[in-house]
Amino acid sequence: MQDLGIRVLFMGNNFMRLLGGLWVTIQLSLISILLSVIFGILLGIVMTLKNPVTKCITRIYLEFIRIMPQLVLLFLVYFGATKAFGINLSGETSAVIVFTLWGTAEMGDLVRGALISIPKHQYESGAALGMENAQIYRYIIIPQTLRRLIPLSINLATRMIKTTSLIVMIGVVEVLKVGQQIIEANRYTVPDSALWIYVTIFFLYFLVCWPFSVLAGKLEKKWKN
């Protein structure tokens, strides 16, 4: 029986439907990643300010977002916003809001870390060469910051893609949901389809995330020191 179960993938457009479901996840993650990078860079810069008020606010934001499971945040926005503000947010919108809030916090912390990790004498030796402030940033600080930041950001992106799988819990029709539908539809014809569908989804996620992990690892090694 088991060797036959795999045929469920090739029946009709089942496989394409799974890919379509995966695409929903990827789209939502990509939007969230993009927004997180933009807001995260801003947040990171704000976090390096010595202002006690911004320090306190960003700190609380960061700690709260990071300590809560992402699924709790999803619930807060998806169920909470609807109830509290009477607005009916779709699962997709809630997902983008939550993953952007979370991604921004993580990204902000990475940016802050990368910025403060540049030793002071790097600024000084730039100045010693007679460089302008803008030149010091352009040629010395930003390139070094990016080298630290890019591998970590890629890792964050894979984490965000993996975490986006949670949207099935707030009713978004994504790859797991499509998988369930296919399993339901073939309940009698292919009784063990569940195994094949979930194995496929497992490897689909792997194929999406793994290249990013490899890339991040390579860049990290290459840019060490």
């Binding site: 088991q2 179960g5 894979t158 993996k162 975490t163 799988s165 949670l166 099935v168 819990m169 797991l176 998988g179 399993i183 009784p191 063990d192 389809s193 569940a194 195994l195 094949w196 569908i197 979930y198 194995v199 989804i201 497992f202 996620y205 792997f206 995330c209 793994w210 992990s213």
Partner: peptide, 23 residues
């Protein structure tokens, strides 16, 4: 390590709970 780190727990659980019984 690669498999575990590059897949979501949610999917791992679906596979364990709904997939493996078919085996």
């Amino acid at each position: 390590i690669e498999l575990s780190r590059n897949t979501p727990l949610l999917v791992q659980l679906f596979l364990l709970y709904f997939g493996l019984p078919k085996m």
